[in-house]
Design a binder for these strands. Sequence first.
DNA 1: GTGTATTTGTACCAATCGGTACAATGGAGT
DNA 2: ACTCCATTGTACCGATTGGTACAAATACAC
Lengths: 188, 188
Amino acid sequence: MRRIAPGRDELIAAIAEVFRAHGYAGASLSLITETTGLGKGSLYNFFPGGKDEMAAAVLAHIDRWFEDAVFSPLREVESPQEGIARMLAATDAYFHSGRRVCLVGAFALDDARDRFAAEIRSYFGRWVADLAGALRRAGLEAADAGRLAEESVAGIQGALTLARAFDDPAVFSRAMANIRERLDVGRA
Amino acid sequence: MRRIAPGRDELIAAIAEVFRAHGYAGASLSLITETTGLGKGSLYNFFPGGKDEMAAAVLAHIDRWFEDAVFSPLREVESPQEGIARMLAATDAYFHSGRRVCLVGAFALDDARDRFAAEIRSYFGRWVADLAGALRRAGLEAADAGRLAEESVAGIQGALTLARAFDDPAVFSRAMANIRERLDVGRA
DNA sequence: GTGTATTTGTACCAATCGGTACAATGGAGT
DNA sequence: ACTCCATTGTACCGATTGGTACAAATACAC
């Protein structure tokens, strides 16, 4: 039969949730088959490389989403302030206002880091660089822009960790409000 | 034979490094026996509860260390500024200036969170509460103190994540310098 | 309706998982 | 010197791991 499984995007999204909830090592194939409803046959048909390829596909999927919704507005919207506002809104939406955790950040901490070092570095690297770029366009000096950008991305990651530790999304919302304020440079 | 293995503290420290590097699920018993040099016999002699008890012991060990070196100075040193300075110094030392990752933060993200929810919550909760207390003693309003404390702890966690993602401890050092500045309230 | 290439379920694989059992070991207390 | 008993290594357990093989099923092109 052809084309019975959900679209590839939905499939990857479902797999992503398993990795998000259990980490790379903890995301067993049985958990994945259970969550997706697909047997190993289908899974290995779509991802011949196995678990590794699934995780890579998930990371690529996330990367694409962030590129479109979070990073590119920072570069391409004329008003840097507007670009930053869009980035913050998309970030808040993506993490379900703190109820969801950052897969890339989680991978950065466990032993998936070595396997996907390049992807992880690129994800955070572009986030920081594009935000710094917007801040520079808003009038900040390069050094200040870089520092503030790094600090903001770190603040978001840390807030996700704390929100999950406390099981309280409000921690994330407070952090986002705070970051929004500190990024509100050069006129409103 | 009696007392051949290293002291319990050193043993726990060695196990901690395995959990730190591989997460809960990724820290296999074979990895632990390999790292510690102890066979399963010894391991299960010291930790009859198995992996779960090892992780609990590691968390308790970390908790004790932070209580002594990081949290208690915030409460007990007369000068809150001095307490904060000690907390920052101890934190920087513990994380090897960004070369080491926070086990509790890592556990908060993967599926160990549910198992150790109480310990994780308590660890971060006391950190934030004690820092907020010191800031209040330094003259800040309760609301401001709470916000700044939460923000600082989140900043530290996020910086650890970024430092690991970039494989660049300098990210952590920059974040610490920044946090030190922002916590320098009420006189110097 | 037939052919075909893709999709799928099932059975199977060796390796490893966390954990248990237990006999051998040998240091400490006397 | 002798007796304990904490400590240790080894063998073993069933379950699960990630992964493979392959035949049955089936949607689509024709």
